[in-house]
Every structure is written in C-alpha cells, then in structure tokens.
Amino acid sequence: MTETDQEKLTWTHKHLLGLKDLTRREIEFLLDTARGFEEISTRSIKKAPTLRGKVVVNLFFEDSTRTRTSFTLAANRLSADVVEFTKKSSSVSKGETLIDTARNLEAMGIDIVVIRHNAGGAAKLLSRHINACIINAGDGYNEHPTQALLDVYTIRQVRGSLEGLKIGIVGDIAHSRVARSNIWAMTKLGAEVTLIGPPTLMPAKVNELPVRVSYSLDAVIQELDVINMLRIQFERLGGNPFPSVREYSHFFGLTVERVARAKPDLVVMHPGPINRGVEIESEVADGANSVILRQVANGLAVRMAVLFLVSQGVAEQSKER
C-alpha cells in the first residue's frame, strides 16, 4: 500500500466537530498530517496551493484572538479565500438564527465554516443543516478540538509520545471546552489524565469520565509529566465557585515553588490567554518548562491539517456516492 492509499483510508470526515468520536488512529493521522504542514511556515514564501479556489468563513459568535488569527493564517497559507464574520451576540430570540445565518453564507458559495459559538452543540447543529464542511473552533463548554490537537501535537513534539504520560489539567473543568477535548485526545493517545481543581469547578459525574480527580495540586504535582493550566474564565463562572482569586491562586496556581517540586522536565502548558499571577506565575509562564508559545506556533500547522483533511473528507464522501 502506498502512503497516499493509506491516507485515503484513514480520513473520511467532512467535519471536525469534536474529538470524542474520533479514533486514536484518526487523531494520530491528523497529527502526522500537521507535521507535514509545519515545513510550509519555514519557507520564505509561506504558501501552498492546496485550497486554492476554496472559501473559508470564520463564523465567530464569541471573542477570540488566537484561534481566529490562527485559522485565518492557516487558510491563507493554503491559498484559500477567507471571509471574516463576527457577531457578538448569539441571542437568538431577536434577529437572525444561527441556521439562517449559515444558510445565507452558504448561498454565497462557501466550502468550509469555522465556527465558534457560546452554545454547546452549535457546530453539530450547523453540520445537520448546511452542506459545507464544519470545523468547531469552540462550542460552549463542549469541545475545542483544534486546541486539544495542538496540545497533544506539542506534547508529542517534546516527549515523542503520550503513551503512559501523566498529565494534569488544572482549573475550571466544569466550564472548559478545552478540558473536554483534552480529555478525549489525551486518553485516546494513551496518557493518564488527572483533573485538578476544587469540586465547585468539576462537572457532574466527573468520576464517570476516564480520568482521575484530585482536589489538591500539591498532592499530585510531583508525579506529573505534563501540566495544562486552564484559564479561569471569569466571564463564565456563575456565583463564586471559589472564595477569592487569592485563595484560588494559593491552592491551584502554578508557582515557581510548585514547579521546583515537580519533575525537572515537567512540560507546562496553557491554552491562553493567560491570567498572569492567577493560575500561573509569570516566571513559570515564561520559564524553561513552558511550551506556551510553541503551542501557539503549532496551532497553525494543526489547523492547516484540519482544513486540508475536511476538504479531502468531502472528496472521499462524494467518491463513495
């Protein structure tokens, strides 16, 4: 079997809605594909003709800097045309519904929709109603698959493989789409995931997930190979699930002192944007263990791979018909 045959066998999805339903093989294939795209960013002319003539819409109903820019750049490097669509409010009782917005965009002839939305399931909803490829760039606190892909991509880059690694995810698990996508990707790739945070930031029935749970960062910090510090999403917290920022930082912040007690090669990650001094101290974020900027750089290759593969997925599906 040639390598191209194998590729065709391995990727048949028209959408990337989440990682929960992908197999280990599919995730690995995606990461391997991303690796091939990494090289483009090192060229003097940072462009490949892969998606020439295709139109990508960035349909963002929530604020985003990193993810949106990363998708735009990724699409540009593959020579696609990119349309930016921002809508602050997703309040649907007034104005156009999500489906109507998407149908209108589709009428203009688009190929790929990159959607970010405050409602879990929004990407899936779109995929049921329009024909374009849908890439989930974050839906409520359901999934943020490209973030998790770039996270595991970065871990593979640094540590070779995730098999057997002990990974801690710290913070607001309940309201985090990054945590959910991370859990699916990391456990499928063989890592052992521990969720760390106060019980007030854990989702219902967390013990039924394929993870361990710890309420004490200090109790588990020494055993971790990788630590992913989630941002405290002040905008999503209802009430006050912890008494104060000071108290949160005291128990769950990644400090220089805590890193000193960890394995020397602890990989420190953060999906950004960072609340310096809240979940992570500046010295740690900018320190030798941190791969935070590398994550951002890798996001580009991963998103190029995703854009490329979903458009291939369409070709695969139409061939089957």
Binding site: G120, G121, A204, K205, V206, E208, L209, G238
Partner: peptide, 16 residues
C-alpha cells in the same frame, strides 16, 4: 437555574 438538561454524565460530556 441556567440548566437545559439533567445534570449528570451526559451534560458533562455534551458541555451543557
């Protein structure tokens, strides 16, 4: 209050 489905395993994996 803000819930849209039963709080349990399914709400957790669906992010609702």
């Amino acid at each position: 209050g803000r819930g849209v489905m039963n709080a349990g395993y399914n709400s957790t994996i669906l992010g609702l």
